[in-house]
């Protein structure tokens, strides 16, 4: 059995099964869920895809980026232009959105990743502001008025399937030579280069993949709201995504999933508070950080925790049998 599971083809088929199942289940859920809840679910998925990308940059590789919304906006506009102006099919548009964002990630990454820590943070923030102002002044994006008439092609199953693909690929990446190199850079750059890790290369890889995810998320976002404008992608959007990553637990994929659910749903759950909603949201961020400074799942090794729980039940059973 174990040998069979090690077979590449079997694994690949399993991977496809998981995707098929996800699509099927989410499709079924989509039929029963009221549209309002479905919309929240959809945004959870989109935020998750983008947050997983940022988690790779900030959580895994340790490079603080405050400009993730820029890549999101690039993906959103690129895909919208592709589908509306050039009649590219929807999924092609999503791919284009991801690729264009990825390209920008690489181009921006080369000069800025020489910077460290807060200098990098402010450079990415500045880049995002420049992108936003640029979109406000471009003809093809229809400037500040906003880009209208995008098809609402994004569906719940599509978002969830892409989210699941992203999760699986991220888990694989983290357990590979590349992923370990990225983790090492987060932990100690000098030690990393002493063991032969080309820190610039891996930082750019992380940046490119992260930007790709943001671009895909942006494309899905554009084809959900059918209307985008530069103010959708301001600094607060970058902050939203970063909060998901930090709140979930930096570098933790399950944490990012939980963060995406909690922080996307929170403003909706808090809606009855009406005018006090954002105030409570702000206080909530502070409180969570005070009580869980490393995030909801920060410092929790899920695999180890599960194993320990498993061992405990086993021991209990053994005790009972005696």
């Amino acid at each position: 059995m174990k040998k069979l599971l090690d077979n590449w083809l079997v694994q690949f088929l399993l991977f496809l099964c998981v995707l098929g199942l996800t699509a099927f289940i989410t499709d079924a859920i989509g039929d029963v869920l009221p549209p309002y809840l479905l919309m929240i679910g959809l945004f959870i998925g989109i935020n998750l895809i983008m947050a997983l990308g940022l988690n790779l940059i900030t959580g895994v590789t340790g490079q603080l980026s405050l400009g993730h919304a820029a890549f999101m906006s690039i993906g959103a506009y690129a895909s919208a232009i592709a589908t509306v102006n050039y009649h590219v099919p929807f999924l092609g548009g999503v791919l284009i959105g991801g690729l264009v964002a990825c390209l920008f990630g690489i181009v921006i990454g080369f000069p800025t990743l020489r910077l460290t820590g807060d200098y990098l943070a402010i450079a990415t923030l500045g880049f995002a502001e420049i992108v936003r102002v640029q979109f406000t002044n471009m003809k093809i994006t229809n400037g500040a008025i906003g880009f209208l008439g995008i098809q609402g092609s994004t569906t719940f199953p599509i978002v969830m399937t892409i989210a699941v693909i992203t999760i699986i690929l991220m888990v694989w990446l983290e357990n590979s030579r590349n992923g370990r190199a990225m983790l090492a850079i987060r932990e100690d750059e000098i030690a990393s280069s002493a063991v032969g890790i080309n820190t610039t290369l891996y930082k750019i890889q992380a940046f490119a993949i992260g930007a790709f995810c943001a671009g895909v998320g942006g494309a899905l976002f554009a084809h959900t709201t059918t209307f985008i404008q530069p103010t959708d992608f301001g600094f607060m959007k970058s902050v939203d995504i970063l909060s998901i990553v930090v709140l979930g637990g930096l570098g933790s994929i399950p944490g990012t999933v939980i963060g995406a659910i909690v922080l996307t749903a929170a403003p909706e759950i808090l809606r009855p508070l009406a005018n006090y909603r954002m105030m409570v949201y702000g206080v909530l961020l502070v409180i969570i950080m005070i009580f869980r400074p490393y995030g909801l799942l920060g410092g929790v090794n899920l695999r180890k925790a599960v194993r320990r729980a498993f061992m405990l039940t086993k021991k209990k059973q053994a005790g009972r049998e005696e």
Binding site: V246, Y281, G282, L285, V286, M289, P293
Partner: peptide
């Protein structure tokens, strides 16, 4: 102060929480 000893990122998020609170307080 409660998170002075933890990572700088959590302090950053806390600060962002404060700023969201302050601006929405003023809107209110």
């Amino acid at each position: 102060k409660p998170i002075r000893r933890s990572s700088r990122l959590s302090a950053l998020i806390s600060a962002i929480g404060v700023s969201i609170f302050l601006s929405s307080f003023m809107v209110r």
